[in-house]
């Protein structure tokens, strides 16, 4: 998967996320603390609501519509109404930029 320069690290607040659209798909890029970043699909697997307005707390993203919860490290759904895992993608920080590896 090609590495993509998605944004500056400082574009994302700690314990927060931003939306990132690329190649006709939409993703969510998360920052926990310092340079710890993660990337998942952007849409909740429950009803395809974008996670960008959700709450990040203790490595969990909570969907803004129905409070479906996913582990941002693994994509694991953590209980109803989220029953299907989120896809995750490698993410890292290089020289203050967030690099994500997404499908071509």
């Amino acid at each position: 998967m090609p590495a993509i320069d998605a944004c500056a690290l400082d574009d994302i607040e700690e314990e927060d996320l931003i939306r990132f659209d690329h190649g006709g798909k939409t993703y969510a890029i998360y920052r926990m603390f310092g340079e710890e970043v993660f990337c998942t699909d952007g849409l909740c697997t429950h009803e395809q609501v974008h996670l960008e307005d959700g709450l990040v707390m203790d490595y969990v993203i909570e969907c803004p519509r129905h409070n479906g919860r996913f582990d941002i490290r693994t994509g694991a759904a953590k209980g109803a109404p989220a029953c299907i895992d989120l896809a995750t993608y490698p993410a890292r920080v290089e020289a203050g930029r967030v690099i994500v590896e997404l499908p071509a």
Binding site: H46, E47, R65, H66, A80, P81
Partner: peptide, 13 residues
């Protein structure tokens, strides 16, 4: 609790 969780999810959708 299971049925009503899903019922209420639909109520919000």
């Amino acid at each position: 609790p299971v049925v009503w969780r899903w019922s209420h999810t639909r109520h919000h959708t």
